[in-house]
Amino acid sequence: MTTRRRLSLLRALAITLVVVILVAPLGWMVLASLKTNVDIYDASKAFVFTPTLDNYTTVLQQANYSRFILNSFWVAAAATFLSLLLGVPAAYAMSRFGMKRSALVVLMARIIPGVSLLVPWYYVFSNMRLVGSFTVLILSHMFVSLPLIVYILMGFFDGLPIELEEAAMVDGLTPIGTFWRICLPLAMGGIATASILSFIFSWNNFMFALVLSGRSTKTLPVAIFDFVGYASIDWGGLMAAATIVTLPIMVIALFTQKYIVSGLTAGATKG
């Protein structure tokens, strides 16, 4: 066996191992969502069992999870839209006008863990009587979504040739018109990437919603805890709810993976 073939075999084994490690918990989650609690605790029925949809019925009907799904979608969509509205012009300005200090602030905002701000946020928003509202959830999600969008789009705008904008202004376009008609259409791939990643973050966010949401604004990740009791855990319902949370994100990631990869590598080969 040649050295190249050995390396190929080793690479294939390493990839297989990584895939198994990543996929195995998801597979167990989906299988457990189709079992009763008795079957989940029975090791002999790990793969051979009688599937049931009772857990999904409990989640979607009895637990009123459709409301929580709508809450999660509304918060994620609103936070993403508002972050794009502010982040796209900010990223363009930082890229074109060399605003290094502002870019450093954005980078610092990405580094600071959001959980460290939960206590001051709760204090401020409680005094404003906003805790438990959609407003505070959207604003808290924007703290992470906005720097993420700016950081990604700066790479895209850095990769756009400045000559295109100069030619457009020679033809009579204003700087704003150049941004709107030239740069923005060319950066649609980056905008799509930033939107996808921002939406995924908001959809999966747990800590912010746990502290700042109310009974009527509870999102799906927080609602999953309803299946965790003091004395027992409804594993079947918990796994069904977790599957419902995970499935939309997996579908989005599957069909938009090329945009995500291009966004994460934007500007990497510049220069």
Rank of each mutant, 00 (worst) to 15 (best):
F134V: 12
I244M: 12
S198R: 02
T193S: 14
D158L: 03
M142S: 04
S126G: 09
A241F: 07
L160A: 02
D158C: 01
Y230T: 14
I176Y: 12
T135E: 12
T135G: 15
F201I: 14
I149A: 03
V144A: 12
G132D: 03
Y123N: 11
P120V: 00
L210F: 15
K218E: 14
F134C: 13
S232P: 04
K218N: 07
E165A: 10
G189T: 03
T217H: 09
F199P: 02
S133G: 15
W235R: 00
L117G: 10
V119L: 13
G229S: 15
G177E: 12
L160Y: 03
R181M: 11
I191T: 00
F201L: 15
S216M: 10
A209Y: 07
V124F: 10
S145G: 02
T174F: 08
W235H: 03
S145P: 03
V136Q: 08
N204I: 07
H141L: 02
I162R: 12
F157G: 00
F208R: 05
V144R: 11
M154G: 14
F179L: 05
I138D: 04
S133I: 15
L117S: 09
P161S: 05
I152K: 08
L173R: 11
F206Q: 07
L137R: 10
M142I: 04
F143A: 13
G189Q: 03
D171F: 06
L210G: 07
V228H: 10
F208S: 11
C183P: 01
G177K: 07
L139F: 11
M169V: 02
I191W: 01
M207H: 07
A168S: 07
N205S: 06
D226V: 10
P147T: 00
F227I: 08
L184W: 11
M154N: 12
V228C: 09
R129P: 05
V119K: 04
V119W: 06
S213V: 12
A223C: 00
L220T: 04
E165K: 04
I182Q: 09
V228I: 15
M188S: 11
F134A: 13
G189L: 02
S145C: 14
W203M: 11
I200L: 15
F208V: 10
A240M: 10
W121Q: 13
L184Q: 07
D234E: 04
Y122G: 07
I200D: 13
M239E: 09
L197C: 12
L153T: 13
H141M: 03
L197M: 14
T178F: 02
L139G: 07
K218Y: 04
G214N: 05
L160S: 02
L130V: 13
N127G: 11
P147Q: 00
T178R: 03
A167F: 05
R129F: 12
H141Q: 06
F201S: 07
F199W: 08
G159D: 13
D234H: 06
L184D: 06
T174A: 08
P175T: 00
D171W: 06
V119Q: 05
G172Y: 08
A241G: 14
W235D: 02
W235A: 01
V131W: 06
M128P: 05
L186I: 09
L173G: 04
F225N: 12
A209M: 05
M207S: 14
E165F: 06
E163D: 08
F143D: 01
I176R: 07
N204F: 08
L212I: 14
L160D: 01
F125Q: 10
S202N: 12
S232D: 14
G189R: 06
I196F: 10
I182Y: 08
G214L: 06
A194M: 06
F206L: 15
